[in-house]
Design a protein around this nucleic acid. Structure first.
Lengths: 346, 346
DNA sequence: TGGAATCGAGAAAGCGCTTTCTGACGACTC
DNA sequence: GAGTCGTCAGAAAGCGCTTTCTCGATTCCA
């Protein structure tokens, strides 16, 4: 057998002794074709293991069945959960998902959008906090705008409003405020927050919400109660260590890590330093990624409907933009008190 | 401004007052072009926010810059870690990754390969245990074979040898055997194994390795010491509960869950039943996914170089098949004893 | 200064498919 | 039985790009 490049529709047509057009019609069910011809074409296609060239189909004005999803880190359970939701909806709609991780590099994010644009992806989904940065925003808009003008759909999860796109927005502020109130309700008065870089809108919102929640009870969150760190497990770990190193005596009774992933790192750091959670110190996270219920102690957090976040974003993109105003779907979180928080003993 | 479809190379060429060919050459740097023309083309392209149509490029015999990665579940940390490795290498090589989750549905897996074939993906990576099923294997081969004949690269992580493809194979058997020996070394004599479905080759290998390792020390793993369950966190949870329910008295002193994810579920189940790990019972997993070091107690496991698994698989695919024989890269694991295992007290 | 050799730009031929547009052919109507 | 539709298969025109192939304009050597 010779090494031939690819089986084409023409091969199928020739083998079935019909025209290209007829073969195409049979394979797509576009128009009615006499039964015997239809039969011959199907048989030939199967025989030759024909797979249509998706590029040619796309070029010929056919379908664009792929959607691009851009997130910061595929390995992060938060994104993984959202991506799961996206994929379910995508699969249900016969769409292929291209998942890209930017490793939090703004330039790479813009580059990916550009590539997706070149692929004529049916939709682009931006998952995760935007960078609050004018230059980045401009660059992003410069890619997104022509993409949409060309008929592309764009939707985002948890994004900056600077980009005028359809968004599924978890209620970061409200959730954090509710959490703050719940923690104050447990009797806590001295707090510390492990925050990610303030460039990220999610960080800013959760911080603000938490601060507001405390303020309602007359508690002020001072700037030096906030430890800024990387938005990762290791970031949480480091920040907790720094927190302890800095103030061995006037330790807070409760620590709020702005994401569960960071809380997990912090939990380990606290344990390593010989502190018992929640006896010596309480800790709470945000997101309710699947694994936190399996921790010991199980983590108090704000439950976000992660999969739904992804599903709704995909929905938004599929349904297409109706009006000209960007739509926003708000999804609220729910405080889940678990064993990592308790009444303070100090 | 009118809603126009897309900026094409022709638009750019016209705007720059050069021919299509010249514009193409400038944008690809294919051949030398007079400086002023080059300048004009670049300017026009930027001005119009031109993005080449990747489909047209692919069709015209240009580049195929996308690779497909198929795994069981994107949300599973094991796959996420491997995918991270794949993505790093892919990005370094200017490739786009399309990640697909099959949710352990064999048919969907085959369907994805078919789609990827249609996309003329540069490579297809199969991540995770194969289904040990003749019909599935045949269907898979029927897709893969024409794909490779057409120049496609295929590589796998942790797969069945039935499919004759390049493979990165973690040493499941050896790792499990080493783990068994280490556990026996701690003094354990009565074991139980939480296993996934035996359809999956990974399960079979780890089970066999563990059994062999025990056998070397004269310990026999009986069939009813093995609890078969779903290959997930919940599977581990359920299996552990069943284990306890079944034999409140002659409890094993050590439980081996064939994956960390399952071990995590089991850990929670054990805790819920009031058993202390490792005082009442020891537990070990396999894979060393990132989160297990943050558990309390931290999980004993077999460390697999997960990211490297992905990297090597991508390497294999990029380097292309040299000879006709499928290549196999073997990566060994390393037993990591942590706090979830201790000398048995019973 | 003439002719060969060189260089670079444009014309045009596909890549594999979808989709009008055409044109047979048989089934109708009056 | 002549004329009119309605069907359905085939011919052909792109979709947007890359890449020969071609040919005019330079440059260089004799």
């Amino acid at each position: 057998m010779k090494a031939r490049p690819h089986v084409t529709l023409e091969d199928v047509a020739r083998s079935a002794n019909v025209s290209l057009a007829t073969a195409s019609r049979v394979l797509n069910g576009t128009a009615s074709v006499r039964a015997d011809l239809r039969e011959r074409v199907s048989a030939a296609a199967a025989e030759l293991a024909y797979a249509p060239n998706a590029h040619a189909q796309a070029l010929a004005g056919g379908t664009h069945r792929t959607v691009g999803v851009i997130c910061h880190d595929v390995g992060d359970p938060y994104f993984a959960a959202i991506a799961g939701g996206v994929m379910r909806v995508a699969t249900d709609n016969g769409l292929l998902v291209m998942l890209a991780g930017t490793f939090r590099d703004p330039d790479r994010e813009v580059a990916y959008v550009s590539t997706l644009r070149a692929q004529r992806a049916a939709a682009i989904l931006l998952i995760g906090s935007a960078f609050e940065d004018r230059a980045w925003e401009r660059a992003m808009a410069a890619e997104l705008e022509p993409y949409r003008r060309g008929g592309g759909q764009v939707a985002a999860v948890s994004r900056h409003r600077g980009l005028k796109i359809d968004t599924v927005q978890p209620d970061n502020k409200g959730g954090a405020a509710a959490l703050a109130k719940a923690l104050v309700g447990l009797g806590h008065k001295r707090f510390a927050v492990l925050a990610g870089p303030r460039q990220l809108s999610t960080v800013v919102d959760r911080l603000a919400g938490f601060s507001d929640g405390l303020a309602e009870h007359g508690i002020t969150l001072h700037e030096d109660d906030v430890v800024e760190t990387a938005f990762t497990r290791d970031g949480g770990y480091d920040a907790a260590k720094r927190l302890l190193a800095g103030r061995k005596r006037k330790l807070p009774t409760c620590v709020f890590a702005v994401t569960d992933v960071m809380a997990i790192g912090a939990l380990t750091a606290l344990r390593e330093e010989g502190l018992s959670v929640p006896d010596d110190i309480s800790i709470a996270g945000f997101d309710d990624i699947p694994v936190v219920r399996d921790l010991a102690p199980a983590l108090t957090t704000v439950r976000l409907p992660l999969e739904e976040l992804g599903e709704r974003a995909m929905d938004l993109a599929i349904k297409g933009a109706g009006g000209t105003r960007p739509r926003t779907v708000r999804l609220s979180g729910e405080v889940v008190l678990r064993e990592s928080t308790a009444r303070p003993k100090r």
